[in-house]
Structure formats: structure tokens, C-alpha cells
Amino acid sequence: MEGDIVQMGAYIGAGLACLGMGGAGIGVGHVAGNYLAGALRNPSAAAGQTAFLFIGIAFAEALGIFSFLVALLLMFAV
């Protein structure tokens, strides 16, 4: 019985942790959208900034991957 409750909590926690991925999605979309907006405004400067686009996406995405990792840990490791 006690183990079932722990397991239930772990599953609920895993589901909640997945909410964090939504935040990462917003963040990545924000980075890409702002890049696109800037690129349309000044297309000649866009090519030089793709590296920063990917760096920004990587930082935003990392946090989503952390939440995914927390979910996985709750599912499989706790």
C-alpha cells in the first residue's frame, strides 16, 4: 500500500514535471520568433547571427530537457 502511494506520487510528479517542457517550448519559440522578426527587418545581418540563434535555442531547450529528465527520474529511478 505504501509503495503504491509512492508510485502514484512519482507518476503524478512525472506528469507535472512535463509542464516544464511547455515553458521550454515558449522559450524556444520566443527566441526563434524574435530572430525571425529581426531577420525580416534587417535580412543582411541575419546570416551572421544564426550562431547566436542556436545558442539561445540551446539554452532555452536545456531547461525543457531538465524537466524531461526529472520526469524520467521519477518514472524510472525513484
Partner: peptide
């Protein structure tokens, strides 16, 4: 930490 978990997490997530 983020450098390593980003890569492993992205690979793991997609395959899973």
C-alpha cells in the same frame, strides 16, 4: 551539467 544533459536528454527523449 547542462552541456552534457542537453545532449544526452535530447537523444534519449527522441529515441524513447
Amino acid at each position: 551539467v547542462s552541456h552534457s544533459i542537453r545532449l544526452a536528454g535530447a537523444m534519449m527523449a527522441g529515441h524513447a
